[in-house]
Every structure is written in structure tokens, then in C-alpha cells.
Nucleic acid binder design. Structure first.
Length: 415
DNA sequence: TCTGGGGTCCTAGGACCC
DNA sequence: TCTGGGGTCCTAGGACCC
């Protein structure tokens, strides 16, 4: 019997948010469409039964694109681009608001469709997963001269099942011996593609690609490598391991070397627990701690309440409460505070977050405020959701706030 | 006309403990 | 006098990903 080969698939939904929207608004098929921005550009039903859509041309604000249809990408607009900037490239593009509930619904549909055929799935967010195909019936079989014919047929079945379960959504799949290569391979024939690669394909198919295709090499590392004249994965693979360790540190240098050689032993992880839960918001205009005190205080309290509600809904408590601020110059600071006991109580979170805020110089205007709960533990079944107090006595003015109150200062520091 | 919101993981220094 | 070493927790920042 030949040895069992590891076959890992990476499945990526094609232009997921945009494709879900096209199911809802089929009249937009083929047009440049971008998803993103706030709530204020819902399509309006017209008297004649058609719908009127907002376009990028009319957009004003600080939103970014989350997804663009392939027709829109042809104009050079893409994910993470500011909508104002995208409007210059393609003003006629239709703009739709983000509807996460709907995307989550389709996410569940496509994942269930995969699970019917291949249950060993690692969730990587709303629109992508890894799948371990190795132990499925037929996965190790050759078909004719194709040594990976068995696994290729399984991947094709998965694609068909996803399409029919979602009413027509397409995905791209890469099947390779590990997660690292599968992630790269799924992009090679996007959209609606299937790419199967074995170790022997590394030099021909992977090495010519830019280093940035490796998940884990971002803008910074990519720029540092480029400065060294290393642009492709093949060029990276030619670097001696010691040279990479010297320039990038022990752990990262070693990993770069292994990644370039297509080595990755990480398993497909079918279950994981969250590490933190957070809420943040970017203001429509920059706000000042003094001049916009009331507004900031209300937002701050609301973020704390949202984090508390998220914790309670998901049955977690957080012991480390943190805040995040982004100033008008885009500088970001964080502060956190670890409590004696984990909490999911809004007033307790608000009080801890207020303590954190006192440690920040608020001279500059703010563009973003966030609240985070980390150090999560599962809420004990039947435990009372009583506020948790530390060893210290709350000072005057920082007693528990009634829910919904924005009384007191932004930061709670008025005497 | 700059740059969302939700996350994970890593590093590094100081506190604290044995 | 002249300065251990290792482990863990806490905090802050940053890179990176979807």
C-alpha cells in the first residue's frame, strides 16, 4: 500500500459579499459594484418596480471597500481602498451597504455544503476555510495518469455542492500537501477555479510568484525583502537560512525559509476559542476630548455596552479590559487593565475602560475609539452576572453607571 | 480625497516570585 | 562588597489577516 499523502484544500468564496448582493439584485450582474461604507446608501424601490442604487460618485465619508465585483476591479478599485479614492477611479460604480447578517447566513450555507462531503474543516472567517481531504474515501486514489485524480474529483464535488446550496455562488479551491501552499494555490485560478499541486510543482508554479502571496508576509516584510532584492518566492528560497535569521530574527527568519520551500506541518484545526471580543468606531469627523466631551462620552459608554452584550450573548467573560484610540494623525495607542475577576457587566467594563483612558494624553483630536475585552473565560453555567469589583474602592464619580447613561465625563475623571 | 472593523500572534521590558 | 537565573504575568505596540 502506498503511504498516505496529506491533501489540504483551501476554499475561498469568489468576491463573497458582492456575489451575495448580486443574488439579491440580479440586475447588477456584470456592472461595477462595490460594498462598503455606512448605512446611508440603501437601494430605493421605485414606483415602476425597479430599484435606484447609490453610486460612488455621490459618496462622502470615511468608508472603505470591503469587496468589489470583478467588473469593478477592472477599474483598479479593490478591497481596503477608501471609497472617496475609489470614486475617482470609477464614479459610476454602484455602492451597496455591508449586510453582515446576510453574509453570515450564506457563510453557514456554504460551510454546511462542504461539511456534508468533508467534515474536517478549519474556519478562517466568513468566506474561507481549510479542509483536510486526506482521509476521505478515494482521496488517495489515482485516476488514470493523474496521481491526484481522487482528491481532484472530491474538490470538484465540493465546488458543485457549494454552488447548488447557495443558489449559484462560486468558489475557488487549491488542493496541496499543506495549508500554506493550498492558500496560494486557491488564488491561481480565481474566480471559479480548481488548482491541485503536489510538492513536485513547487519550483514551476510557486517560485515565480511574488513573496507577498505567502500568507504572513505583509507590507512591511515585503518591503524589507524587496530592499534586499528578493521579490519572488524562488528568490527567497535561494537565500541561506542563516542569512534570513540574521536579518529577520530567529523565528521569523526560519519561518521565511521554510515557507519559501513549501514546508508547513500545521494541522487543520477544527475548533478554537476566541481570545478577545471588541467594538470600535471611526467618527464621521475627528472629535476632541474637551470640545466634544458629551459626544465622546456617549460613544464610549455605548461601545462598553456593546462589548458587554457581545460577551453575554456568547457566554464569555473578560478579565482584561482595554481601549484603543486613533488620533487625527492616525497614530494609535492602546491601554489595558486586568481586573481581579472576569466580567461581562457593562458598568464594570465602562469603569475599567475609564481608568485606561486616564492614562492617555488627549491633546489631539480623535478619529477612532475602541473597547476590548481579553483574557476570556467561558461563563459558568448559572453564574450570576453580578458586577465584579476589584480590591479597591471606587472613588466618587466612578460608581456603576446605570445602563444607557452617558453621564459623567468622557473618561470619568471629573471630580 | 487618505486610510473600516473584527480579530490573532509576537516581541519586549518590568514586576514579581522562587 | 558590585550584582544568578528562570518562569509567569501584565502592559504596549506592531505586523498581519479576513
Amino acid at each position: 500500500m502506498p503511504p498516505r499523502r496529506r491533501w489540504i484544500a483551501h476554499l475561498d468564496m469568489d468576491a463573497f459579499y458582492a456575489s451575495v448582493e448580486l443574488l439579491r439584485y440580479p440586475e447588477l450582474k456584470g456592472l461595477p459594484v462595490v460594498i462598503g461604507g455606512g448605512r446611508r446608501h440603501q437601494p430605493l424601490p421605485q414606483a415602476d418596480g425597479t430599484r435606484r442604487f447609490a453610486t460612488l460618485h455621490d459618496y462622502k465619508g470615511r468608508g472603505v471597500i470591503t469587496t468589489a465585483t470583478y467588473a469593478a476591479r477592472a477599474y483598479g478599485v479593490n478591497s481596503a481602498m477608501g471609497l472617496m479614492k475609489a470614486a475617482l477611479l470609477c464614479p459610476q460604480a454602484v455602492l451597496l451597504p455591508t449586510d453582515f447578517d446576510e453574509y453570515r447566513r450564506y457563510s453557514r450555507l456554504f460551510k454546511a455544503a462542504v461539511a456534508e462531503l468533508a467534515p474536517v474543516i478549519e474556519d478562517r472567517g466568513i468566506d474561507e476555510i481549510y479542509i483536510d481531504l486526506s482521509d476521505l474515501p478515494g482521496a488517495q486514489d489515482a485516476v488514470g495518469h493523474d496521481a491526484a485524480g481522487g482528491v481532484r474529483a472530491i474538490a470538484q464535488e465540493i465546488r458543485n455542492n457549494v454552488r447548488s446550496a447557495t443558489g449559484g455562488l462560486t468558489c475557488s479551491i487549491g488542493v496541496t500537501p499543506n495549508k500554506l501552499l493550498a492558500k496560494i494555490a486557491s488564488e491561481l485560478d480565481k474566480p471559479d477555479g480548481l488548482t491541485v499541486l503536489a510538492e513536485a510543482d513547487l519550483a514551476l508554479r510557486i517560485w515565480p510568484l511574488p513573496v507577498r502571496r505567502i500568507k504572513g508576509i505583509g507590507p512591511k516584510a515585503g518591503a524589507r525583502l524587496a530592499a534586499l532584492g528578493i521579490n519572488t518566492i524562488g528568490e527567497l528560497a535561494r537565500q541561506p537560512r542563516e542569512a534570513l535569521v540574521e536579518r529577520f530574527g530567529r523565528a521569523y527568519g526560519r519561518w521565511l525559509h521554510e515557507a519559501a520551500h513549501g514546508i508547513d506541518d500545521r494541522p487543520v484545526v477544527t475548533h478554537s476559542e476566541p481570545v478577545s471580543i471588541s467594538r470600535e468606531t471611526t467618527f464621521e469627523r475627528d472629535l476632541h476630548a474637551v470640545a466634544d466631551k458629551a459626544e465622546l462620552g456617549a460613544i464610549f459608554t455605548q461601545l462598553c455596552q456593546q462589548v458587554a452584550a457581545d460577551l453575554q450573548r456568547k457566554a464569555y467573560r473578560g478579565r482584561t479590559i482595554g481601549i484603543k484610540l486613533r488620533f487625527d494623525d492616525f497614530r494609535t495607542v492602546t491601554r489595558d487593565l486586568t481586573l481581579p475577576e472576569a466580567t461581562a457587566d457593562a458598568a464594570t467594563i465602562r469603569q475599567a475602560a475609564g481608568q485606561c483612558l486616564k492614562r492617555v494624553d488627549l491633546g489631539r483630536r480623535l478619529r477612532l475609539l475602541g473597547v476590548r475585552a481579553g483574557g476570556l473565560t467561558r461563563e459558568r453555567a448559572g453564574a450570576a452576572a453580578a458586577p465584579v469589583r476589584g480590591g479597591r474602592t471606587p472613588s466618587r464619580g466612578e460608581a456603576a453607571l446605570p445602563a444607557g447613561s452617558d453621564a459623567g465625563l468622557f473618561g470619568d475623571d471629573e471630580s
